[in-house]
Design a protein around this nucleic acid. Sequence first.
DNA 1: TAAATAGGTTTATGATATAAACTATTTTAA
DNA 2: TTAAAATAGTTTATATCATAAACCTATTTA
Lengths: 93, 93
Amino acid sequence: MFKPLDPLLHSQLRLAVMSLLIGVEEAEFTFLREKTESTAGNLSVQLDKLEKAGYIGIEKSFKGKRPLTTCKITKVGLKAFEEYVENLRNYIE
Amino acid sequence: MFKPLDPLLHSQLRLAVMSLLIGVEEAEFTFLREKTESTAGNLSVQLDKLEKAGYIGIEKSFKGKRPLTTCKITKVGLKAFEEYVENLRNYIE
DNA sequence: TAAATAGGTTTATGATATAAACTATTTTAA
DNA sequence: TTAAAATAGTTTATATCATAAACCTATTTA
C-alpha cells in the first residue's frame, strides 16, 4: 500500500533539482540556484548527496575565467525519480 | 514555480496517516498502525504533531476495557493536504 | 588598490524522524 | 492464581538531515 519513499528524493530541494534536471540536457549550478531559490550552501550540499548516490553527474570546468559547475541526471537518477513518483502517488491519490 | 512544501505533511508517515484519514470517517490508532506499518511510538509522536497543527482531531475513549484512540481529519487538515498535493505536483509532473 | 561580486565549499546548529525503552492494563496459560 | 504474554499506547534517546552562516578564492569594478 504505502511503499517507502526514497529518502534521498523525499527532500524539497533535492526533489526540485531532480525535477529541473529531468527537463534539460544539463544545468549550471547558478541556474539551479535561481530556479530553486535556494542558498548556494544548501544547494552545494544537496548536489553532493545526489552525486554520491549516483543520481546526478557533476562536472567542474570554467566559463571564461570563472568556475562552472554543471549537473546532469543519470539513468539511475531518472529511474529512482520515476519510482519515487510512482510510490508517492499511493499517498496522494 | 516550486512552492514550499508544508513540512508537516512532507513526511512519509504523517502523509500516509493523512492519506488514510481522508478516505474514512474516522480511524483507530491500531488501524493506522497496521496500514502504515509503523511502530506505535513513531505513530504516537506523529499523530501528536498533526493534532497540534490542527490537522486531525484525536479522541481517547475505551473499547470494552481497553484504551481506544480515534483520529479524524479536520477541515484545516484537509485543506492543508490538498494544498500540499497541489504544490507537490509542480515537482513531479 | 580597495571594495564588491561571482561561484562556490565547509561548518555549525537546530529540527526531525525513528526506534527503543517504558507504563499500565488485560488476557491467557500452567 | 499467578506468571507470562499481549494490548494499547507514551516518553525518551539518538542519529540523521536540511538549512543557513561563515568562509574561501578569484575576478571585476569604482
